[in-house]
Design a protein around this nucleic acid. Structure first.
Lengths: 196, 196
DNA sequence: CAAAGCATGTAAGCAGTTACATGATTGT
DNA sequence: ACAATCATGTAACTGCTTACATGCTTTG
């Protein structure tokens, strides 16, 4: 579970419950985990079993007990070790590219329809990301940019720069792919005009 | 299994054995499947069970029997239906970004080391991709560009354009991320120089 | 003689997903 | 009255991965 390290990361800020962690993942732009229950609650059990976190159970009158997880020294050591480990190559996957690859089975119009549909999705996504970033900036003010969806105040300029860059690279990704799609449509159109 | 459709795609060119399909996936730049046995052979069994492919067993004297898979009309219909279905958003995942997100646990030097290591990996990967594309061009000649690692001759200008664009977007992805990394290193350096 | 290629397959496991299950509280 | 928020957890599944298992042939 690679989400294990991301959870330790959040807990390095301050203690959280599973529910809160779930929110943090769901609200974030750049963490690719959906924050589903199985992963969060399962990882927390595992983290506790291996001594990376401690639990404080807070009984509540009517609601289920909150379990507040706090990172331990072992947990911090594990997090640091991971941060210092060799980074992996990033991955770019587009099933739409795979569809495109077999475009010979489609007519010019059908192929352009597929691309148009991809283009629309990308444009929507790019706008949504930009909007979320904008709102995040508004909430906290430029100097306090926390990263889209993450409410914890960033502690210094270095961290703000890093989080902001990460979010920007995410938006840039969609925008680059959008540009690529537009360009391909254009070039395909030129080609079919030539052939006439 | 989304690889199912990619296999149908290859079989739409001509019949292949499992072994050959495995090669096609392993050699390709832009298909993200590793082409491991379990997936290929498993999918082929499944495709046959559902009537999308037919099998011709060719006994060989010393080697194990070759099973040559041919796409059926049902298979072609399934492929076309998938090609016309709504494309999904592409995905960009970088665990390195997650490492970066918790950079507060690292010193300036350690953070720069992480970025330097990421940068090197990306540069190597970009060079490797470019090289593979170049070799693929050499083999087949500009006009016949088949897509890196895929030996089937492309049938017309439209398909060549699409395949080439797909490979280029893959390389551009690594190069964009490389540029992003360099830029972030630079901006972090400026920041730490300011603070002095 | 070792490595790579040809050719099939299986076992075990990891990471991630959706959907289900329960149930009180607060806001529209 | 309905939806959203708080709060925990489980079941079943998909997609993909590495490694194992067998065994012959060709190339360096």
């Amino acid at each position: 579970m690679s989400i294990r390290h991301a959870i330790l990361g959040f807990l390095s800020w301050k203690p959280f419950t599973g529910y809160e962690l779930k929110r943090l993942f769901a609200d974030s732009l750049s963490f690719h985990w959906s924050g589903n229950n199985n992963q969060i609650y399962g990882s927390l059990v595992e983290l506790h079993r291996s001594g990376a976190v401690s639990i404080e159970v807070q009984q509540q009158e009517k609601l289920p007990a909150r379990k507040l997880y706090t990172i331990t020294e072992e947990g911090r050591a594990e997090l640091r070790a991971w941060l210092l480990s060799e980074p992996e190559l990033p991955a770019f996957r587009s099933l739409a590219h795979t569809q495109l690859a077999w475009a010979e089975c489609l007519s010019d119009a059908e192929l352009d329809g597929l691309l148009a549909s991809y283009e629309r999705k990308l444009a929507d996504q790019a706008i949504m990301c930009r909007e979320r970033m904008r709102r995040s900036l508004e909430e906290t003010g430029e100097a306090g940019y926390a990263g889209a969806g993450r409410a914890e105040p960033r502690r210094n300029a270095r961290e703000r720069l890093v989080w902001r860059s990460i979010d920007e690279s995410q938006v840039a990704f969609y925008e680059t792919e959008l540009g690529w799609t537009k360009n391909l449509r254009l070039r395909l159109k030129e080609l079919s005009d030539e052939g006439r």
